[in-house]
Every structure is written in C-alpha cells, then in structure tokens.
Nucleic acid binder design. Structure first.
Lengths: 208, 208
DNA sequence: CACAAACAGTAACATTTGTCACATTGCGTC
DNA sequence: GACGCAATGTGACAAATGTTACTGTTTGTG
C-alpha cells in the first residue's frame, strides 16, 4: 500500500507516509453516497486515494451548485479547515465514482503540520488550489452568461473524466448550474449547431 | 505600539507580538491606492492595523467584482496563500479608508507557523473565514437574483462601516456587482418604495 | 409486448436584466 | 446667478433566462 501512497502523494516524505500508513483510517464509499453534508461536524481530514468526488454548495431551496472535483491524490480543503477546529462543513460532497479515502484525525493533522514539512506544504498547496478554483467559479458566475458557463462546466467535466464523452443528462447539468433543463437543452442545441458538441441520449460528445 | 497590536490581535501570544514588533515592516496607504494587483507576485503576508481595504476579483473586460472587506485585526488570506510559494495574486486590493498595515516576509511566515501556536491558529482561522465568506458570495450570485444580491451587498457595506449611511453612487455599486447603473437605480427605487432605504445623492440610508 | 419512467425537443409566453436615449436634479465654482 | 458636471430618474426596447405545457423518444421492467 505504501507504494501506491507514494505514487498518489509524491511530495510526501517517507517518514510521513509511514506515519499515514500506521495511523490513518481507510474508508470506502459507493457512487451516489454523500460523504459530507452541509452543517455536519468534521473531525477528519480526507485524502482521496481512488474514485471521484464532486463538491457542491447547497442553496436554501434545495439547489446543488457544483463547485469542483476532488480527485485521487487530493485532499478536501474544507475538511482541513473545518477539522482544525472541529467545525461544521459548508459544503456537500457526493461520490460520482466509487471512492477509497484515508481519514486523518484532527489531532494528527495538527501534529504533522509542525512535524513534517511536506505535510505543511501539501496543506498550504491544497488551500491555494481550492481557493483559486473557487475564484474561477466566482468568475464564471459573476462575469459570464449561461452559454459560457455551460462551456466552462463541460470543459471541467471532460478534464475530470479524461474523456470527451460526458455521461450527463440535461437535467443534471441544469441542477448543477442552478438553471432549468430547457435552458440547457436550448444552449446545447446551439453548441451543436456551432459544431462544438454532438448530442446523444445521456451523452454529450465534445468535438473540440 | 505593542499595546495596540495586542488589542488588534488578542489571540497572539506575547512572544509572537514581540517578534512581530521587531521584524515586521510597517507601511501605509492612502484611500484609493491599490495595494495588490491581479498577477502581481506576493512575497509578504499583510496584517491590517488601521483603515479599510476592499478585495475584488477582476474580469477580463475590466470588471471589478467586489468580494469582501479586509479590516483592522485581519490578514489577507490571499497574501498568505500566495506568499507561501511566492506566487501571483488572483485578486485586487483597493484602499477605501487610509490604511496602515504590517508586512510579514515569507520566511518568517513559515517559521512562525512551526514556532507559535497562536500564529498557526490565526492563519488557519483566516483561511477558514475567507473561505466561508467567498462561499457566501458564491451563494449570492449562484442562487439569488439581483434585488437580493443588492440587499446582501448593502448589508455587508453597512457592517463594514458600522453605520447606516452608505456613501456610494449607483454607478459604483453597479460596477462592484457587475451590472449597470440603471438596474441599480431601478432596484434601489423599489427598495425605497418598500421602505427599506431612503435615497439621497451619493448616500443611501438604510432603514432596517 | 405493454407500460412506466426518464430523457429530450420545442413553442409560447413571463420575467429579469441589459442597453440606449434623454431629461432632471443637486452641487460646486466662477 | 450662470455654468458645468456628476449623479440620478425614466421610458422604451432588446436580449437572456425562466416557466409552462405538451410532444415524442428511449430504456428498462414486468
């Protein structure tokens, strides 16, 4: 297992990896599971080792606004921030593809910050990456109209699955962009006419 | 000066305050100055000791989307994150009210993280607070229409200046919400009719 | 096969927001 | 007071987005 950890987290020093090995709690989840809910108390930092997780911001009226993907080799920044003071989560994390992850208890998280430079740097890098990602999300909703937001959304999904065939229904996309299915259908149709995509049932093929 | 630092940053331990005293660089800025620009390299973490700073996200076409206020006793989370790796800023910081601040060089920032628990906790708290604040901003643009966003905006400004008289022109508000002046005028008029505000020239009086 | 359920297309219309044009008001300066 | 300028008001219209209602299509299931 150490081998795969070293592969997933190449920046970690060997002694840190040993420590993770001997202390961490492994957990697995199935596609569709909700790992973290808005308002839930967080006592662990999560490191993803396998699968895909999507992070959402929940609206008062049941909206589920998509923010970013969590991938193997990454940590949940929100879990880090919350775990530091054992506070509640402001986001919702849903499993898209069966997940395996490591749970690091709050006490170790703090200890390692002082003890392992590679852990410290990993934590800071995680903060930075997520901060930037959220700023990009802000850009997309603050400055751009729905057509561009849709393109941005599709692009990010293609990056996450490393493929050009997105298995998404118009309805799903609509929910994650907080709009209605009809709007998405309309815009996708236009994209098809512009030659950017080809539309199939439950499947959007990117041509760019 | 130590006395005022202790007041502004009550969580800091005495030895940390001594260290700040002896190492930090003091700097002051005038209203209207831009402290930090998008794309600029950051080598210092900033602690505000006096005045008010507004943080914006800049759009490609010159938009200046308002995100949050930075107040005395607070640190710029973005400067922390960037300073850690001496990377570029993704935000713009503009002085609203003459500012005095302390600049902490990158090297000290890291050293203190290991050395002073109260610094470590302050940094983590800063991350957390800003993360939450940005998430609220995402909420407001993702889930809410312009009328509610305007109310949210006015509320935050009133909190920042601790008063009910906002010295803002409709044009300024429009820029910071990335919309047009006419829209803001229209919505403010409606708010006035609903008895939420009273409108004067360059001055919006909150009645709630 | 029959049926239900999810998915997708589309037209018509309502609402919100953005844009343009121009009028009006308040305020400082000469 | 006359003038100039920035701030604001407002109506008309355009464009984007949201809503409603209905159609047809695909898929899975009994």
């Amino acid at each position: 297992m150490q081998h795969s950890l070293k592969k997933l987290f190449p920046s970690f020093s060997d002694d840190l990896i040993d420590e993770i090995e001997s202390n961490a709690i492994w957990q697995s989840y199935k596609a569709g599971d909700v790992i973290m809910r808005t308002g839930q108390y967080i006592n662990y930092t999560l490191l993803i080792t396998k699968g895909q997780v999507k992070i959402y911001r929940e609206g008062e009226n049941g909206g589920e606004f998509f923010m970013y993907y969590l991938q193997p080799g990454q940590a949940c920044a929100v879990s880090m921030i919350c775990a530091t003071k054992s506070q509640t989560s402001q986001i919702m994390a849903k499993v898209v593809e069966d997940v395996e992850l490591i749970m690091i208890p709050l006490s170790l998280m703090e200890k390692w910050m002082m003890q392992y430079r590679s852990w410290y740097e990993f934590v800071i890098l995680t903060y930075r990456t997520r901060f930037e990602e959220i700023l990009e999300v802000v850009d997309s909703i603050a400055f751009r109209a729905m057509d561009e937001r849709l393109e941005f959304y599709l692009k990010r999904h293609a990056e996450a699955c490393h493929c050009k065939e997105l298995k998404l229904s118009h309805q799903e996309i609509a929910i994650e962009l907080n709009t209605s299915r009809e709007v998405i259908s309309r815009l996708l149709k236009k994209m098809e006419q512009r030659g950017l995509v080809r539309l199939h049932r439950n499947n959007i093929e990117l041509l760019t």
